[in-house]
Amino acid sequence: MAEPILKLESITRTFSDGRFVQRVLRDVNLAFFTGELTIIAGPSGSGKTTLLSIMGLILQPTEGRVSLRGRDVTDVAEEEAATLRLHNFGFVFQTPTEIPALPVIENVLVAHGVQGAKIPAALRARAGELLEQFGLADYAHSLPRALSTGQKQRLAIVRALLNDPGLLLCDEPTSALDAENSEVVLETLRSLAHEESRGVVLVTHDPRVMPYGDRVVELEHGTVTADSREGKPS
């Protein structure tokens, strides 16, 4: 079996307000592979977004280990976690998260330049190609307010792909879209997994999304209750 791009072992996450401790994730064991679209499904409050945040090195687990391409990254410092995010993950958020002040092309390039790196001409060309591929080339120099919600979500996907990440982490990317746009986005994510051999993880509570997944993980009360993948690690 191929080595997982990301591996979660015995992940537990608690939040505390000083008086009460809430256990959001309990003993989660999952591995994610390239070429596969994984859907993490569960009702609201089941811990899906927290799990996605831990996968994306945005949150640290209270207990357990996170391995990225075989390297233990559980306790990396905040600064290093940011750099690992930049080079390994692409994020598509629940609601469009374009930066309204930046033109569409710069909203894409920001994924590379946020740490101050210069934008090479080749990367600028790649951003242009991706915008072309996703039907946004005409808007490259417009502000995002010119885009529809569906176009903004496609812009988010373009931005997520700019650095050629191994793993795309998507938090309910279709929740703000109509059925037609949802289908476009989901087909796109599936083709990214299959044709470009990326790992795609999609968190949702929408049952209409399930058919697009190669694998469905069900999360309830912070615990994995089902994993359609053979040899599930939990």
Binding site: E79, A82, H87, F91, T97, A111, V114, Q115, G116
Partner: peptide, 12 residues
């Protein structure tokens, strides 16, 4: 927050 999530550090 988006800039941070994309890989921006505090110093950025």
């Amino acid at each position: 927050a988006v800039l941070r999530a994309l890989g921006g550090r505090k110093r950025d």
